[in-house]
Design a protein around this nucleic acid. Structure first.
Lengths: 194, 194
DNA sequence: GTCTATAAATTGATAGAC
DNA sequence: GTCTATCAATTTATAGAC
């Protein structure tokens, strides 16, 4: 009846979907997955409860959609190679920059990831994926430290991984005013990447 | 009626109380506070729902009891001074050992602490307390690094704090087989504490 | 495409029996 | 000291009106 084209309908659907996802991410991240009700999401998104079930099969499916879409963005950034990098120092420095760029641009999302990685349940699978990628990066960092002539490259990489996780944890947990740039700068200094 | 003395009754009460607290801590830590129901706690403790309300006013009071009792243990350990320590290196090394001793002995509890520190809600107050103590330790570490002749003592202390948090996060999040001792050893090496 | 009304199950919490 | 029975509120999820 109404003269809307299929494209316009699709746009509206996408907007509604994204609106729900955005509200859900914010609540999941701030209050936790289990303690966030569908009603709360609907209220935050300014819509009715019923509409959510029009776009997502259930609460768990909603969470998985959030994780999948956001994880995609993260992977895209990590996979881009940079041919202009010459020294292992530059390479490591670049990786660190990319990691924190992703974290900075997806603060609420990463708080949710950390939250889920600590809990059994729905998000466990995602936590496993995250850990697998972490291992890959440890391997890469080890080889780079090795090329740098560091004495214990594997141990160094492991420690760097813990340090990055720690800074990320403090950053996403702090309300604001966290000296992220200072921490990154001093981190690079301490690992001879400057 | 029954010939039980007041002391015996008190012992039974204490046992039941501790039994509930233990079950609740385990579930809160593994599945999160909000997603753990009173029914689940009762089942895990092998008792009825009603009994829980005989010992605790409600779910929030139960959580606070857990935090208070466990936090007490932590404070006791941190506050003990050691007069035999001479060099700032030894002092810092000792502090690090104490921190990880507490974390190691209360793994599930610290996972809960981190969990709560990331979420708004019931545990926020505890997270604030934890952060305050963190600041005190940063100050102490700064002065010790200063006495060691480190160039940027405050930045160094801040980075050490993040590293400790990161190792702790990985340790409590990992199922097992985390190389905690290796990480601590290499951490001390990298900060010239050996 | 969105909403309201409602069903069915679960939650935190209480009262009273033993 | 412990349990069972039960309440009121809230939860996820569905069906049907517009």
């Amino acid at each position: 009846m109404s003269p809307k084209s299929k494209e316009q309908i699709e746009i509206i659907r996408q907007q509604s979907r994204d609106n729900i996802l955005e509200a859900a991410l914010d609540l999941f991240s701030n209050h936790g997955y289990e303690s966030t009700s569908i009603s709360a999401i609907a209220k935050a998104a300014g819509i009715s409860k019923g509409l959510i079930y029009n776009y997502f099969e259930g609460k768990d499916h909603l969470l998985r959609s959030i994780l999948e879409s956001a994880m995609k963005v993260g992977n895209d950034i990590f996979d881009q190679e940079d041919d202009e990098i010459r020294t292992p120092q530059e390479h490591l420095s670049r990786i660190i920059d990319q990691v924190f760029l992703v974290i900075r641009n997806n603060r609420v999302f990463w708080r949710l990831i950390i939250l889920l990685s600590l809990q059994k349940g729905v998000g466990s699978k995602m936590a496993e994926m995250s850990q697998k990628q972490n291992k890959r990066q440890i391997t890469k960092a080890t080889s780079l430290f090795s090329r740098m002539g560091v004495h214990k490259p594997y141990k160094e990489a492991l420690l760097l991984g813990a340090l990055i996780d720690g800074i990320a944890l403090q950053y996403v947990g702090m309300q604001e005013n966290y000296p992220l740039d200072h921490q990154i700068a001093h981190l690079k200094e301490r690992f001879d990447l400057v």
